Simulated scan of single mutants.
Amino acid sequence: MSADRFRVAGPDLALGSKQALALTMALHELATNAMKYGALSVETGHVQVRWDRDDHAEPIGFRLSWQEHGGPTVTPPRRQGFGSRMIEQALAGYFDGIAELDYDPGGLRFELTSPLTGLTQQD
C-alpha cells in the first residue's frame, strides 16, 4: 500500500500513555476495516486523518477526524462488533470526550472530540 493513500495533518500535541494506547488501538481498528471493507479495499480510495485544538471551545478542545474517500458505498453494519464498541465507548472515556462513527454512504467517518486536558488526563 502506498503512503499517498493516507493524508495526515495536525499540530504536535502531547498525549498521555493511556490515551496514546487507546488511540493507537482505535486507528488500527479503523485502518483494518478500511482495508477489508472501506476506502483502502480499492485502488482509488484514500483516508484523511486530521486533528487540531479548538481554542474557541470552553474548555479548550481537541478534535480528531478520520474520513474515508473513494471507496465502496458504506452501509451500516447489522450488528456492532467489538471494534466499533471499543472505538465509540472506551476511547471516549480515555479522553473524557465523545467518539462517533458515521456510516456515511460516501465514506466512513469517525470523530473524537474532547477537552484538551483529556489528552493527558490520568485516572
Results as ranks from 00 to 15, higher is better:
110 F>R: 07
106 G>M: 13
66 W>F: 07
30 L>N: 06
75 T>M: 11
28 H>G: 12
8 V>P: 01
31 A>N: 08
64 L>I: 04
45 G>Q: 03
38 G>F: 04
56 H>M: 13
29 E>A: 15
30 L>F: 07
117 T>R: 15
86 M>Y: 12
99 A>F: 05
115 P>I: 09
90 A>N: 07
20 A>R: 15
79 R>K: 13
30 L>R: 06
16 G>M: 03
69 H>L: 09
88 E>F: 00
109 R>P: 01
116 L>V: 11
89 Q>R: 12
111 E>A: 13
113 T>I: 13
102 D>L: 07
81 G>A: 14
107 G>A: 06
82 F>I: 13
22 A>F: 02
91 L>C: 03
85 R>T: 10
120 T>A: 04
93 G>P: 00
5 R>K: 10
111 E>R: 15
12 D>F: 01
31 A>Q: 09
43 E>H: 06
91 L>P: 01
106 G>Y: 07
74 V>N: 08
104 D>F: 03
15 L>P: 03
63 R>I: 11
62 F>N: 01
123 D>V: 14
86 M>T: 05
64 L>D: 02
63 R>E: 09
16 G>V: 05
109 R>C: 12
40 L>N: 07
72 P>N: 06
29 E>N: 14
49 V>N: 06
96 D>S: 15
25 M>W: 01
6 F>E: 05
56 H>I: 10
61 G>T: 03
48 Q>A: 10
63 R>Y: 00
66 W>K: 02
18 K>A: 14
41 S>M: 03
111 E>M: 14
56 H>Y: 12
32 T>C: 13
86 M>C: 10
21 L>D: 12
83 G>A: 14
109 R>F: 02
98 I>R: 15
107 G>D: 05
47 V>W: 04
112 L>P: 05
47 V>S: 05
71 G>K: 05
86 M>D: 00
68 E>W: 04
18 K>P: 00
94 Y>S: 09
76 P>E: 12
49 V>M: 14
114 S>K: 08
38 G>P: 04
61 G>N: 04
28 H>L: 09
13 L>C: 01
66 W>D: 02
58 E>F: 11
13 L>H: 00
63 R>H: 08
90 A>D: 01
21 L>E: 13
14 A>H: 01
114 S>C: 15
63 R>L: 11
14 A>D: 08
24 T>Q: 12
34 A>R: 07
50 R>Y: 03
37 Y>Q: 11
2 S>K: 02
80 Q>V: 15
48 Q>N: 09
27 L>C: 09
106 G>F: 08
8 V>F: 06
34 A>P: 06
43 E>L: 07
64 L>M: 11
94 Y>E: 12
73 T>F: 07
16 G>W: 02
112 L>G: 08
72 P>T: 08
93 G>H: 13
25 M>G: 08
91 L>V: 14
56 H>S: 15
43 E>C: 00
78 R>Q: 15
112 L>Y: 09
69 H>V: 08
58 E>Y: 09
9 A>K: 05
35 M>R: 12
27 L>K: 06
116 L>F: 15
71 G>T: 06
48 Q>G: 02
72 P>A: 08
108 L>E: 03
